[in-house]
Amino acid sequence: MHHLDSGKIKQLQIFADLLPEEWSQVYPLLDHIRVIEGEQLIREGDRARSLFIILRGHFMIHYRDGKAFTLNKKGDIIGWSAVISPFQYTANVTALTDGDVLCIPSENFVELIQGNTALGTKLIRKINEFINSRPHTGML
């Protein structure tokens, strides 16, 4: 995580409203993951242990019924099942190109919300914005 620019990551939509002291609690929880073309990031039915934020790359979200779409916007989130009961991924996600994502483990995320409810409220509000912007895609 150290080689990523904290200031640039802070500008991502999900973190944009955080105060400096709130950001200092979130930043250490983020892991940077490199993905390669064709890699399966999320498997449908697996326990949703992490929430992902796209930094770079194209990702295909595909459902069992054949529906699929792609995401490539920097700051878009994937895998919000990590914060929604029953905490199980509801789609597959495959990298169409090499890319980079940030990862927040679900457990750390819940601890963060409980430890600082104002911060938790801001993050949940942002996640809801993402969910509402993709109304037909299920929970992922």
């Binding site: 009961s85 601890e111 949940i124």
Partner: peptide
């Protein structure tokens, strides 16, 4: 603390997936 608040969250979300009770249960 903190498990029972998380249980409230999980039981509430089963009925309404976009509902976040965690902060209120604290």
């Amino acid at each position: 603390v903190p498990m029972s608040a998380r249980v409230c969250q999980a039981v509430g979300q089963k009925e309404n997936p976009s509902n976040f009770l965690l902060m209120f249960a604290m």
